[in-house]
Design a protein around this nucleic acid. Structure first.
Lengths: 160, 160
DNA sequence: TCTATGTATGTAATATCATAACATGTCAAG
DNA sequence: CTTGACATGTTATGATATTACATACATAGA
């Protein structure tokens, strides 16, 4: 397990982005899927910051760059990225964020700062196992889970 | 810890409902809040089934019963119930469900059946603790957390 | 190379979910 | 019986998401 390259910690973001993009290309090819211009661009946009962007935010960016300007353009690209494991949907925000560990088969939890809106992808294997156990006890078979937390990130906490 | 009165298990629902309603009245009074007709009615509607209802579903019911028929009527009552801990919002469904353990200071996870749409409130203290630990490690201070799972309930699993 | 097929994109229209702002009504403390 | 706080009603609008259909593009097979 690598040391968590959490969004809150200062890090070489260019490197972080490049890595994710490279792995993304490899993964889509391996999956027999196509990394088209819109899809790649949407992923790049999501990778710019460790924040979650709404579909309409992404759409606005795309529109200024000559792509379509109707909602399905954004929603389809985002859905593709989520399906491929290259992005995650943050339920609480109705928004999307790039996956920081594409291809690593991880169980993510999202830590959302209510002040600066940074979104960090934390490791939730333990939480997920507890949840699985509880569900199993009830005879419930989990297919997808959502674990999200809202609060204060270390930086914003310091400010207060 | 009481045996989980999970939504999936057959149970005396009238009793389940009555208990929740009675505790709800007590809690609002204790909190110095007012359990008005709309609010009580919304809670009753949510308690009818162990499912999550959208604000507009609730609103439609209210409208046929002589309450207002504009969205804020439903949203306000729902917000009140959530604030009082009498209902929960299910992020994944943009919907609301009555709390089965009002006043018990619990850490709920929600198990959502994708077939029959039942929503069970499971105990997530363990999962929540794992999440807290992981967040603390990142210096993140959790204020609210969302733990939801989508999958197959025991009944629907049997059918398949 | 041509063409058939599946996949991707563009666009219009509309559905669904949610809130701001303001007017009116109700209740209980002074 | 008035005042102030809270609750409700209503209008309007904003934000998020999907359906349906038309067009374009890539690629495998004839």
């Amino acid at each position: 397990m690598p040391e968590p390259d959490l969004a809150f910690a200062s890090h070489d973001h260019a490197h972080c982005t490049q890595g994710a993009l490279a792995r993304a290309e490899a993964m889509t090819t391996a999956a027999g899927a196509r990394m088209t211009p819109v899809r790649r661009r949407v992923l790049e946009i999501l990778l710019e910051e460790h924040k979650a962007l709404g579909a309409y935010d992404v759409l606005a960016r795309l529109a200024t760059e000559g792509f379509g300007n109707q909602p399905p353009v954004a929603y389809r690209a985002l859905e593709f990225l989520v399906d491929q494991g290259l992005a995650h949907r943050i339920q609480r925000l109705n928004a999307f964020t790039a996956c920081v560990h594409p291809g690593e088969d991880h169980a993510p939890a999202f830590l959302i700062c209510r002040v600066c809106h940074m979104v960090a992808e934390a490791e939730a294997t333990a939480a997920r196992q507890s949840l699985d156990a509880e569900a199993a006890h009830a005879g419930f078979q989990i297919e997808r889970s959502t674990i999200e937390a809202l609060g204060l990130c270390p930086n914003c906490r310091g400010q207060a």
